[in-house]
Each structure stands twice: as C-alpha cells, then as structure tokens.
C-alpha cells in the first residue's frame, strides 16, 4: 500500500511538470493559434538558465529561480516578436515548420552553450524526506506538487480578476473584437508567449532534480502534447488534469505493468480516451461560424 502511495505522489509530481508545460502550450495555442512544437525545448532552456544562475553563478536557489524565470519571460516575448509575428497570415504549415525548426535550433544551441553532459541541480529539497505516518516521500516531489498548486491558483486569479488576464482571454476568443476595443493585440500576444515561456521555465527547473538538466529533457514536451490532447486541446483545466493523469498513469505502469510499458502508457491511455471521447476530457466541440 505504501508503495502505491509513494508511486502516486512521484507520478503526480512528474505529472505536474507535464501539466505546466501543457498549460503554456495551450495558452499560446488558444491565443495565437500557434502550436508550439518547441515548447519542451523552451522548458529545457529554462532548466539550463536555472542551472547557470544557481550552479555556475552561485545565486541562492530562489533568487536563481527568479532570475531564470525573468530571462524566460523576455525570451518568450522575443520569440513571438521575431519568429512568430512575421508569420502572421501565413499557413499553418509554415508555423509548424518554424516551431519544429526552433526546437532543433534550441537543442543545438544548448549543446553548444552548456555541452551534452547531464548536470545535477542541487535544490533546498534534495535528499530530504517528508514523513506522513509511515509514508516516506521525497521532499522534491512534494515541493513540486505544492508549487504547482500555488502557481495554478495564482494563474486562475490572474485570468479571473486582472484586467490583463481578462484581456488575454478576450484576445484568444475574438482577435478582431480585441482590436475594436483597443487592446494592443500584438503586445498581448507577446505577453502570452512570455507567460507561457515563464511557466515552462518553472517547469524545467522543477523537473531538473528528477531528470537532471540535459539537452534532451525537452522530450518531456512529447508528453505534454498528449496531456493537452487528453484534456481537450485548448482547455486550460484540461491541460492540467491531462498532465497529472499522464504522470500518474506512467508511474503506475512502472508498478503494475511489465517493464517498458511506462513509456507507452501515456499514449495507450490517450488512444483509449480519444476513441471514447474524441474531444478530450474537458474539450467542447466547437462550431465555427463561417
């Protein structure tokens, strides 16, 4: 029984990382209609920036996290300004090629900058445990879950109550109407990219103690994609729930299924859900007016 709960918690922790990557991914997709295939790599850059600030420049942990996230914000806005905005009005195919190209570029850049090795990242939670009754949990896993809950709550409040948050949702819903009421649509798009990249950066730094910082950690993006689809592409709560489900299913597969299944479990689950409920868990079948 203990084994089950420990696996549940570690699965949820990894799922939280998937959820955050999927969240940024969905935010960007909803607002700008860009499917950012490089979002996993954006996360990887965030992890490397965290490594640079904390390990190389010896910033205190939390200050390093803040510095890295601040850099990610600027990075996200620049990506939109110089890579995606010039593509406005181009077909979906050009956008796909550009974001796929970006993912390759970022991986190459990281291996030139930081090298192809695997780097550990010390955190204040490393090698510490939380004991609840006779349950022994890694503090890192618990910290990830707590941080994710706080972050999601903050995002919820931001989108629900702040003017900029409401404007971002409005822009996602109807770009033309956003122009009509005087929302600077291009700037809002850049801010959404900044937000998406910042969240991915946090996810990357949180993932670092679990999977180490390395050039290929962006493949987590490959898990965030089914997470987003599972939740119903375009649904923010769906992305979060989808991410956590995939994390939990993966870790349960380690426990109960033959070896190797943990890598495909996410996709099997996705296939089953899509057969039963093609719009995803939280998706609505949208009717587009012509």
């Amino acid at each position: 029984m203990n084994e089950f709960f420990q696996q549940l918690i570690s699965g949820t922790a990894v799922g939280c990382v998937y959820a955050l990557v999927a969240l940024g991914f969905v935010l960007i997709y909803k607002a700008t209609d860009v499917v950012n295939f490089a979002h996993g790599e954006v996360m990887m850059i965030g992890a490397f920036l965290g490594l640079t600030f904390i390990d190389t420049l010896h910033f205190p942990y939390w200050l390093g996290v803040i510095a890295a996230v601040a850099c990610m914000t600027v990075f996200g806005a620049l990506l939109n300004r110089f890579l995606l905005r010039p593509l406005a009005g181009q077909g979906i195919l050009s956008v796909i090629v550009v974001t796929l190209g970006l993912s390759i570029l970022l991986r190459a850049f990281a291996s030139v900058m930081w090298g192809p090795e695997t780097f550990p990242l010390e955190t204040p939670f490393s090698r510490k445990v939380v004991r609840i009754a006779d349950l022994v949990l890694s503090q890192e896993h618990v910290a990830i879950i707590v941080l994710t809950v706080l972050l999601v709550a903050a995002l919820y409040a931001f989108f629900r109550y702040s003017r900029l948050g409401i404007a971002m949702q409005a822009t996602s819903e109807n770009q033309l109407a956003a122009y009509y009421v005087g929302i600077p649509v291009n700037r809002v798009h850049s801010m959404i990219w900044a937000l998406g990249a910042a969240i991915a950066g946090i996810a990357g730094i949180m993932l670092a103690p679990i999977s180490f910082v390395q050039v290929n950690m962006g493949y987590v993006g490959l898990k965030a994609f089914p997470a987003a689809v599972l939740g119903g592409f375009g649904s923010i709560p769906g992305a979060i729930v989808g991410g956590i489900i995939i994390g939990v299913v993966e870790s349960m597969a380690v426990l109960y299924l033959p070896e190797g299944f943990n890598n495909v479990a996410a996709y099997l689950l996705l296939l089953i859900v899509l057969m039963v409920r093609p719009q995803g868990l939280f998706g609505v079948q949208t009717k587009r007016r012509v």
């Binding site: 409005a170 109807n174 109407a177």
Partner: peptide, 9 residues
C-alpha cells in the same frame, strides 16, 4: 457589423 462581442465573457 455582426457586433463582435466577446461571447464567452
């Protein structure tokens, strides 16, 4: 024309 309100807000 067509009002273009934010239907989901």
């Amino acid at each position: 024309e067509g009002r273009e309100i934010f239907r989901l807000r």
